[in-house]
Deep mutational scan, measured.
Amino acid sequence: TEEYTYTDKEKADRAAKEWANRGYTVTVTQDGPTYRVRVG
């Protein structure tokens, strides 16, 4: 499991979509002003 942190919702959504397109399980959680994209 890897985790990426973004401050921009659009970038987080785009990253999540790209990982999902590659067949990974993706979870996006909002943590205050940041968005965490957990992959795998």
Rank of each mutant, 00 (worst) to 15 (best):
Thr7Glu: 10
Glu10Arg: 10
Lys9Thr: 03
Asp8Glu: 08
Asp13Ile: 14
Pro33Lys: 11
Tyr6Gln: 01
Gly23Asn: 03
Arg38Glu: 07
Arg14Trp: 11
Arg22Gln: 11
Val26Cys: 05
Thr5Leu: 13
Gly40Lys: 13
Val39Ile: 10
Tyr35Phe: 12
Val37Ile: 08
Ala20Ser: 09
Gly40Leu: 14
Arg22Leu: 13
Thr1His: 13
Val28Ile: 12
Tyr35Asn: 00
Val37Asp: 00
Gly23Glu: 02
Ala15Arg: 04
Thr25His: 12
Ala15Tyr: 06
Arg14Gln: 14
Tyr4Asp: 03
Thr29Ile: 14
Tyr35Asp: 00
Thr34Phe: 15
Thr5Glu: 10
Asn21Cys: 14
Pro33Asn: 14
Thr7Trp: 13
Pro33Arg: 08
Lys17Gln: 13
Asn21Ala: 14
Val28Cys: 07
Val39Asp: 00
Gly23Pro: 00
Asp31Trp: 07
Arg22Met: 13
Arg22Lys: 13
Glu3Ile: 13
Thr27Val: 11
Ala12Tyr: 02
Tyr6Lys: 00
Gln30Met: 10
Gln30Thr: 07
Asn21Phe: 09
Pro33His: 11
Glu10Gly: 09
Asp8Ile: 07
Lys11Ala: 15
Val39Gly: 01
Thr34His: 11
Arg22Gly: 05
Ala15Lys: 06
Lys9Pro: 09
Val26Leu: 02
Glu10Pro: 05
Pro33Gln: 12
Val28Leu: 07
Glu10Ser: 10
Tyr24Leu: 05
Glu10Asn: 10
Tyr6Thr: 05
Gly32His: 03
Lys11Pro: 05
Gly23Tyr: 02
Tyr4Gln: 04
Lys11Arg: 10
Lys17Asp: 08
Arg14Ser: 11
Thr1Met: 13
Asp31Gln: 08
Arg14Phe: 10
Arg36Val: 15
Ala20Met: 14
Tyr35Glu: 00
Trp19Arg: 01
Pro33Thr: 12
Arg36Leu: 12
Val37Thr: 01
Thr25Glu: 10
Asn21Tyr: 09
Thr25Asp: 08
Val39Ala: 03
Thr27Glu: 09
Ala20Glu: 13
Thr29Gly: 04
Asp13Gly: 06
Tyr24Trp: 06
Gly23Lys: 02
Trp19Glu: 01
Glu3Pro: 04
Glu10Val: 10
Glu2Met: 15
Trp19Gln: 01
Lys9Asn: 04
Glu18Tyr: 15
Glu3Gly: 06
Glu18Met: 13
Val26Glu: 00
Thr7Lys: 09
Pro33Tyr: 11
Lys9Asp: 03
Thr34Gln: 08
Ala12Val: 03
Tyr35Ala: 01
Tyr24Gln: 03
Gln30Ser: 07
Pro33Glu: 14
Tyr4Gly: 03
Thr7Arg: 10
Lys17Leu: 13
Val26Gln: 00
Asp8Met: 05
Ala16Ser: 05
Val26His: 00
Asp13Pro: 00
Glu3Asn: 05
Asp31Ile: 12
Tyr24Asn: 02
Gly40Met: 14
Tyr4Asn: 03
Thr34Val: 15
Ala16Leu: 04
Thr25Trp: 12
Gly32Ile: 02
Thr1Trp: 15
Thr34Tyr: 15
Trp19Ile: 03
Glu18Asp: 10
Gly40Phe: 15
Pro33Asp: 15
Tyr35Cys: 02
Gln30Gly: 05
Gly40Arg: 14
Tyr35Gln: 01
Glu18Ala: 10
Gly40Ala: 14
